[in-house]
């Protein structure tokens, strides 16, 4: 959910709305915001699953250090979602475990 107007910070600085694809579904995002922020704004809290247990994980510390905040962006696995800015047409996938490294492709 977006904060439309913050009592101290005011409204979000203008940004261009773009469309990205998350697990095959289009969502609207702002160009340049971290992918993780776009996902949360769209109500998507899980960004990956863990390698052995398969349990879902989302952003926890939010500083871009942990392996819990990794996702698959434009086919590349293990991308830091708090550190990666949104670009128009980006394709984001919930990363399954260690992700697909594409060896067999």
């Amino acid at each position: 959910m977006r904060i439309s107007k913050h009592p101290i910070l005011g409204v979000r600085p203008a940004g261009s709305a773009v469309s990205i694809t998350v697990d095959g579904e289009p969502i609207t995002a702002f160009e340049g915001e971290p992918v993780a922020a776009a996902l949360l704004a769209a109500g998507l809290r899980a960004v990956r699953t863990m390698p052995e247990t398969g349990e879902p994980r989302g952003v926890f510390t939010g500083v871009g250090r942990s392996t819990e905040e990794l996702g698959t962006v434009d086919g590349e696995a293990n991308v830091q979602l708090m550190r990666t800015p949104v670009r128009d047409g980006m394709v984001v996938d919930t990363q399954q475990g260690l992700g697909d490294w594409g060896e067999s492709s």
Partner: peptide
Amino acid sequence: VWPFAGWTLPGVMTARAARAFMHLHYVLP
């Protein structure tokens, strides 16, 4: 941080993560 039952579920986050979402990106946790 400190472990408790269910703390690994998506939607559980630290104060700094929550503040980054709200104050840098205008997104509610």
